[in-house]
């Protein structure tokens, strides 16, 4: 469900050239930025033909268990397992193979708005305390690169964010939306919004105020 990018090519090939390795390549998220062809070419370049398991949804523990059983005999003697998957898949496999070093061959990146369906422009960072009521339905945390809750930082130029000129300033968008809603008064409010990071740290428990 995340974007997966292959780590430094030379290093991976060097690792793949070790004799006693076993490779897992997971293509569960085959439709979401998984560099399938790149991985195949890498394996070819390293001359790895056997000792490769092409699997789906390694992140699903019951599947991973079955893959393990299937390759149990080879895995017993493997010195290391090289895994092409997102960070979740690697961790699941490492849990099943506690005695063998598991080497990730990919870095995992986050993709905006991917909450189960195709990635979206709008993103939710799961802050646990939705601010959309006061911001005209545009999220200040994800649309402002600094995640500011009390108005813009002042660094935007021509409505574009100072962090990335291709990005709209979230607070400019919010003020435009509030104007359409005739709620621009909300920008002149006296109260100060402060995030409560405890919500995240404690995994989303929210006490009744």
């Amino acid at each position: 469900m995340l974007i997966t990018k292959v780590k430094e090519r030379e290093k991976i090939i060097a690792a793949l050239r070790n004799k006693n390795i076993f490779v897992f390549k997971c293509f569960g998220c085959k439709e979401v930025y998984f560099p399938e062809e790149e991985i195949d070419s890498l394996l070819e370049e390293a001359g790895v033909k056997n000792r490769v398991a092409r699997v789906d949804y390694l992140c699903r523990e019951e599947f991973a268990e079955k893959y393990y059983k299937k390759y149990e005999n080879i895995l017993k003697d493997a010195e290391a397992v090289i895994v092409f998957s997102c960070g979740v898949g690697i961790q699941v496999l490492a849990k099943i193979l506690p005695d063998i070093p598991v080497i990730p061959a990919c870095d995992t990146h986050y993709i905006n708005g991917f909450q189960g369906l195709t990635a979206q422009d709008a993103d939710c960072q799961q802050c646990g305390e939705c601010w959309l009521n006061i911001t005209g339905g545009i999220c200040p945390i994800t649309s402002c690169s600094k995640g500011l809750l009390n108005g813009p930082c002042g660094g935007a130029k021509e409505g574009k964010c100072e962090v990335d000129k291709n990005m709209d300033c979230g607070w400019v968008l919010i003020s435009e939306r509030l104007k359409l809603l005739k709620e621009e008064g909300a920008l002149h409010k006296k109260s100060t919004n402060i995030r409560d990071y405890r919500l995240i740290i404690e995994g989303g428990k929210r006490s009744e105020e």
């Binding site: 469900m1 995340l2 974007i3 990018k5 780590k7 569960g28 998220c29 949804y57 390694l58 992140c59 699903r60 523990e61 599947f63 997102c86 960070g87 979740v88 898949g89 690697i90 961790q91 699941v92 490492a94 849990k95 598991v102 990730p104 990919c106 870095d107 995992t108 990146h109 986050y110 960072q125 799961q126 802050c127 990071y197 995240i200």
Partner: peptide, 22 residues
């Protein structure tokens, strides 16, 4: 602050830090 479960559901999560340390 993010932390993503895989597409199939398990307890492991990935922070998608983009520099896998595993």
């Amino acid at each position: 602050v993010e932390g993503y479960h895989g597409i199939a559901l398990g307890v492991e999560k990935c922070a998608a830090c983009g520099q896998c340390y595993l």
